[in-house]
Design a protein around this nucleic acid. Structure first.
Lengths: 349, 349
DNA sequence: TTCGACCGAGGTATCGTTTCCTCAAGGGCG
DNA sequence: CGCCCTTGAGGAAACGATACCTCGGTCGAA
């Protein structure tokens, strides 16, 4: 279709340097069996013509892109940005690099399908499964090595690194209970569903902690949220207050929701942690800079990133034939332990 | 290299369905000239074999990827995450999709080169130029349509959407001066350099406002920061306090830095805005949720995203030959006007 | 009855690289 | 002096898909 001036190809370089494309290819890739003089001549022509290899053609032939795809539900969530940074940092020394794409939380199937199709381009794929349904994932039957980083049990088609949502939330809730809260809101919680999504699991932990400590629980305190963002966290707390629901603690489904909650409590003149204790989940960098600093559950971020990459490397090695016997090894599923990071939004013991 | 089971190709499908690859291709792409029965048979085989088109091969042949690349300095900065989201949202209806890569703030040249090389894969590229030097950009001589979104004047090799750093910072500074601040810190500022980077430009605006309003300026109030993140903003304010520097206002180079500053002021027992007024830059979503809410300069985020895409669409149309005469049109450079969004971190007039 | 249009389908070149193999020339070693 | 190994270089086949062109058959219109 392109009418514009054709891009410079390896053939153009070969012709201008009076060598074969094979030789040009060797020079570009730093392979041996090229005379120094020839090499130099080729490099001169490359510079003169401004030749740059076509990565698509290279990928097709080489069957390799040196790129790892990361699929996240949203691009503007601190948690995913920070996860991406950790992964990119760890990947850099290996010569591969990270490419981030958005899956969208509740996109139409066709869009999801298109997203998945593109993932085939990468040497390996990391998928964060938050809004994805198992059926969506089943359809993902390509050969590319995949590692899931997620929230919930899934059909074990892929290696899967899970955070311990239930125990993490239970620890957070127990912490509030131990520090004296008795009416704790589960902000962004979800109940009465058979789905095993993140809000449901964290709510489950919230229940568990109450049961363990023998504290009765008011179901009205589970406050669902449509979108787990700051504005929704803010709105939900305002709504609880408007409805006259009394509470003295908040377990937020995510730190981002907690930040919205903190702001709402401030507007309502409610003191944190004196009147209401707040605990978040994810331990994003922002927790150190809220007012007050946010107590949060660290799902094991460093370990999650490291484990994901270890699994992926292993699958990729098997895939590229270095350890062919490992190609069909059963999928692995690990749960990374969570730990509570106590800051200022909860009271001292 | 791959020893594993070869992926299913269009040829495998053709063989199993007893048709030609051409026919399979037509079916996959929904092209006409295929009998309903044949189409159905092919689709059955596709489902049975789990065939998925190889996007790399398709891209090579079609000369098109339907993907737009976005190069950002860091993946965990709210500003870029939010920019990416806006771009992705606007791109979705066009059938293209956004792919985000990290350039790194101060990476080695080789890494930058590798990053750039991969960008050739995309139909269009959006580059945020913060840590990039003009020389780096010169080397970027491929044919792919490129739009720069940046902070500073650049060699006009590409279309360029700039934010008005100088006037934006001047407006912010003037706002503080008008509301009574007299010793204003330029947090993350930079002076005494000929470079036209973002910190320098915003510092320039800070100077301008002082000059315009005839307020004398203490050079010690310009506090440089190595990394424009929350921790650095926090540390810089603590350092100023430790050094006994008196101040009653802060213009932060970015909102993220301002958030760090707010936290430091809180720890120091300094009230905002009563004792010290604070204004940030970028107008990220977080500004609505800090305590107090952060007054900030909106560089025109919506308009920036819209303009970037308009330029890119136009270049891409020219590139693909729809308007060949436009292919060599001179590059455009626009500056989007900034506007101050007043919140709670500055005093009422 | 004949001719042209259209439909279904396939053959084949091509996108720009890399990779495998071949081959000639030169040099060291027995 | 002959043999073998190494070096420099090129020819040609992939990689997996799409697009252009061709071709036989059918059907409607003149």
């Amino acid at each position: 279709m392109s009418t514009g001036p054709r891009a410079v190809t390896i053939g153009d370089v070969a012709r201008a340097a009076q060598v074969s494309t094979t030789t040009v290819s060797k020079v570009i890739n730093g392979l041996p069996r090229v005379a120094p003089r020839t090499r130099e001549r080729v490099l001169d022509v490359v510079a003169e013509l401004g030749y740059q290899a076509n990565p698509t053609a290279r990928n097709l032939r080489a069957g390799r892109t040196d790129a790892i795809g990361l699929l996240v539900p949203e691009l503007d969530r601190p948690y995913f940005g920070q996860l991406a940074t950790r992964l990119a940092d760890a990947l850099e020394p290996t010569g591969r690099h990270l490419v981030v794409q958005r899956s969208g939380l509740s996109r139409a199937d066709e869009l999801a399908a298109a997203s998945f199709a593109r993932l085939r381009m990468y040497d390996g794929v990391i998928i964060t499964v938050v809004g994805l349904n198992p059926p969506d994932l089943e359809q993902l039957n390509f050969r590319t090595p995949v590692v899931l980083v997620g929230e919930r049990p899934l059909p074990r088609t892929f290696d899967h690194v899970m955070m311990d949502n239930v125990e993490g939330a239970a620890t957070a809730t127990a912490h509030l209970l131990e520090r004296g809260s008795r009416r704790i809101v589960m902000l962004g919680g979800r109940q009465g569903t058979t789905e095993q999504d993140m809000p449901t699991l964290r709510t489950l932990g919230y229940y568990k902690a109450h049961a363990r400590l023998g504290v009765p629980l008011d179901e009205r305190l589970v406050a669902p949220i449509r979108l787990l963002d700051m504005a929704s966290g803010y709105a939900a707390v305002r709504r609880l207050a408007d409805d006259g629901v009394a509470f003295d603690g908040i377990v937020a489904a995510t730190d981002v929701v907690a930040i919205g909650a903190l702001r709402a409590l401030g507007d309502l003149g409610i003191r944190v942690p004196a009147d209401v204790q707040v605990v978040g989940f994810d331990n994003i960098d922002e927790t150190e800079f809220t007012k007050p600093r946010l107590t949060s559950v660290d799902p094991g971020n460093e370990q999650i990133a490291a484990t994901v990459l270890r699994f992926l490397e292993s699958r990729m090695a098997a895939h590229s034939g270095e350890q062919p016997e490992a190609a069909d090894e059963p999928t692995v599923e690990v749960t990374i332990p969570a730990r509570l990071v106590v800051r200022e939004s909860t009271r001292p013991a």
